[in-house]
Design a protein around this nucleic acid. Sequence first.
DNA 1: TATGAATGAGTTTTCATTCAT
DNA 2: CATGAATGAAAACTCATTCAT
Lengths: 216, 216, 216, 216
Amino acid sequence: MNDVLKIQTVDESLARARRKQIFLAVTRVLARKSFHQATVKEMALEAGLAAGSIYAYVQSKDEILLLLADSMVGELVDALPEIRARTHDDPRHELLAIMHAALDVIDRYREAFAVLNHEVRYLEQRPQYRTALKEILQPYKEALAVPLERGRALGLIRFDDLPSVVEAVHMLCSGLAMGASMLAKTDKEVYWREIAAMVEGRFFDGGGVSAEVEET
Amino acid sequence: MNDVLKIQTVDESLARARRKQIFLAVTRVLARKSFHQATVKEMALEAGLAAGSIYAYVQSKDEILLLLADSMVGELVDALPEIRARTHDDPRHELLAIMHAALDVIDRYREAFAVLNHEVRYLEQRPQYRTALKEILQPYKEALAVPLERGRALGLIRFDDLPSVVEAVHMLCSGLAMGASMLAKTDKEVYWREIAAMVEGRFFDGGGVSAEVEET
Amino acid sequence: MNDVLKIQTVDESLARARRKQIFLAVTRVLARKSFHQATVKEMALEAGLAAGSIYAYVQSKDEILLLLADSMVGELVDALPEIRARTHDDPRHELLAIMHAALDVIDRYREAFAVLNHEVRYLEQRPQYRTALKEILQPYKEALAVPLERGRALGLIRFDDLPSVVEAVHMLCSGLAMGASMLAKTDKEVYWREIAAMVEGRFFDGGGVSAEVEET
Amino acid sequence: MNDVLKIQTVDESLARARRKQIFLAVTRVLARKSFHQATVKEMALEAGLAAGSIYAYVQSKDEILLLLADSMVGELVDALPEIRARTHDDPRHELLAIMHAALDVIDRYREAFAVLNHEVRYLEQRPQYRTALKEILQPYKEALAVPLERGRALGLIRFDDLPSVVEAVHMLCSGLAMGASMLAKTDKEVYWREIAAMVEGRFFDGGGVSAEVEET
DNA sequence: TATGAATGAGTTTTCATTCAT
DNA sequence: CATGAATGAAAACTCATTCAT
C-alpha cells in the first residue's frame, strides 16, 4: 500500500483488508456501470460499508481511482519475490515474467483497468493526482527497471534513458492488455506469445525465452 | 446524417450546419475535459448556442455521443466517392483506402473518438442506443463490405460470414487508431505501413498495394 | 368577445375565428392533459397555429384561461336572444332557461371548465386577472340579473342585494355542473330536473329562503 | 403509512415523523399557491428540510400528492377505533360516523384536498400512480365496507356490488366536502345534517340517526 | 471507526416567450 | 400577421460529502 493513501489508521492490517474489500467491490461495480454512473454509496454498499464509511479510506470519489491503481500495483508487487526467485536473476526472463504478471493483473481486473486507463487522462491534468499516481506506479516501474538495468550492465541490452524505456514497456503492457481484452481467449494466447517474442527481439536482440513464458 | 438524430427541424440544411457546429465544439471541449466533467451548457456555448438550444438538435446529453458518431461516420462517407474513383474497383486498394480514411477521421477527432470508444460500452447496454448506434454505423460497415464482397467474388479473399469480417476490420481500425494515438508521429507512419501489409496478408493472402497506401 | 382580450386587430372577424379555434383546440388538449402538463406549443399546434403565433391572441399562457372563460361566456351570451324570445319575459322561465344553458355550456366543455374552475382560485389572487375575470363574467351575470330584477319588480321574489343573489345562482350552476359531471347520463337528467324545481322553489316561492342566501 | 411510500429509511419512526412534517408543510404551502406554482424546494423548506432532503421521503414531486393522500387516509384510519367503540357495532351509526370523520379530515386539509382531487385525474392516467393510489385508499374503503357489509347481513340495506356502493359513498363524501367548502360555517352544518338524512334514506331506507351525527 | 440522515451545490432538462425573417 | 429557431430563466433531481451520534 502506498503512502499516498495512508490515512490515520489505528489498525493498519484492518485498513489494508478494508481497502482490498473496497477495491474488489469497485471492480465488481465497474463491471456493470461506468465510474460516473456508479455512486459512492453503491460502491460502499457493495463493499459492505455504509454510505459515508468509505470516506475513512478515501478522501473523494476520484481518489477511489487511485485506490484501484494502488491495489493493482500491490498485487503485482506481491508477486515479485516469487518471480525473482523463479527467474534466477536472468534479466530477460525476469522482464518477461513481470510483464506477464502485469498482463495478468490487468486481465483479472479488466473493467476496472479499462476505466482507470480512461480516467487517468483527466486525473493527470490535476497536479495533486498526477503526483499521487506517479508515487503509486513507482514500485511497478522500479520492478521493471531492475532487469532492464541488469541487462544493460550485462551488455544484453543497450539504451540511454532508463525511464523512457520503462515507460515504453509499460505502455506496451497496457496497450496490449486493452487490445487483447477485445479478442477471444485463444487468440489472446497467440497474441501474448507473439508479444513476448517481439519484446525480446526489440529489447534484447534475439534470444529464446518466449516459449517458456507462455507456460507461466 | 442519420435519421436517428433528426429531431424537429424542417430546415434541414440549417440543422445540418448546427450539428456540425455542435460536433466540432464538443470535439474541442473533449480535448480539455471528460464527457462527464463537461456540462451540456459548456458544449452548447462552445458551439455558439445558448444553454438550452442544443436540445433542439439532441434529445439528451448522452445523445451527443450519437451525434459524434454520426458526424464521424458522415465525414467518412463523404470521402467514399473519391476513394472509389481513385481505386478503380480494385478491392484490395479500396479496402485499404477506406481503412486509411477511417483512421484519418479517428485521428483527426482523437479525443472525441477516445471518449466515444469508452462510453460506447455503457451506451450499448441500453437497447435504444444500441439500435441507434447500429443504424449510425451502418453506412460505414456497408462501405467496408463492398470491397470485401467484390474480393470474394473475384476469388481474392475467402470467408463465409461477411458481417463478422466487417466487424473484425472495424475493430482493427479502431484498435489501431487508439493504439497509434499513444505513439509519436513518425512511429505512427511506420505502424500504419505495417498494418497495411498485415491486413493485406491477412485478408488477401499477399499482394503489393501497401506501399501505395501510405502515400495517401 | 370581451375587451380584455382585444389586442390590436386589423380584421376583427378573423381574430374572432382564431380565438374560437384556439378555444376549441385548448378544450381538446385539456381532455388529455392538465393545463400545466400541456405546453403552449402543443395548444398552438392543435389550433393549427405555429408555436409563437398564439401570442398574437393571448399575452401569456395564463391568459389562455381567460380566453377559455371568455369563449364559454360568449357561447352563453349568444344563446340569450333565443332564450328571451322563447320565455316571453317570464322571469321564472327565463332564469331557469339561462341556468340550463349555462349548465349545457359547462357540460359541453367539461374538462376545460374543470380546469378553469380549479385554476381560477390562483388566478384571482393576482389583481390583474381578478379584474379581467370579473369583466369577462359580467355579461353572464347581467343576463342572470335581468329575470331576477324583473321577478323582484313583479313581486315574485324578494331580496336586497342583487349581486350576492346572482353570485349564489352562479355558484349553484357551477357546483351542480361539476357534481353532475361525476354522474351517469340518466342520473344527470333527474338531477337537473330536481335542481330546476329547487331553484324555482327557493327563489320564487320560498319566501324567506332568499333572505338566507344573500347573507352567504 | 402505506408501503407505497416507504423509501430507504430503516428508522421508520423518524421517517414517519418527517412525512407528517412534510404533509403539514405542503398543506400550508397549498393554501397559498397551486401545486404547480409551488416548488419542491419551497415545500421542503417549509417542512424544515433542505431542498434535496425531501427526496429521501418521496421519489418525485408528483409523489408528494400520494403522500398527501396517504397522510389524510392515515388520520382517518387513526380515528376508526374510537368510532367503532362509540357506535357499538350499529352499522348505520358507524357508516355515518366514518363519513363524518372523512368530511372532517377533508375540511381540515381543505386546500390540499382540493388540489389532490383535481390532480388525481392526471395521476390516474399513469398506471404506477393509479395502483399506488388504490393501495393508499384501500384502508379507507375497507373501513366503509365494514358497516355496509354488516348492514346487509342484518337486512338493513340491500345491494349486490359492494365495491360500487363503497365508491358511491366515497364520491358522496368528497363531492359534498368540495361543495361544502364553498359555503359558510353555519350552512355547512345544515348541509351535513341534510346529507346524513339523505344517506340514511338512500342506503338504509329510513331511520333516525341523523340528528345524533351532527353533534359529533 | 461506523453509520446514515441531512445537506446544497451543481446538472440536466423544459418551455414560455421573443424576434428576425 | 405568421413562423419557428433561439433564448435563458427556472425547476426537478442527483449525489458527493459532512457530521452528530
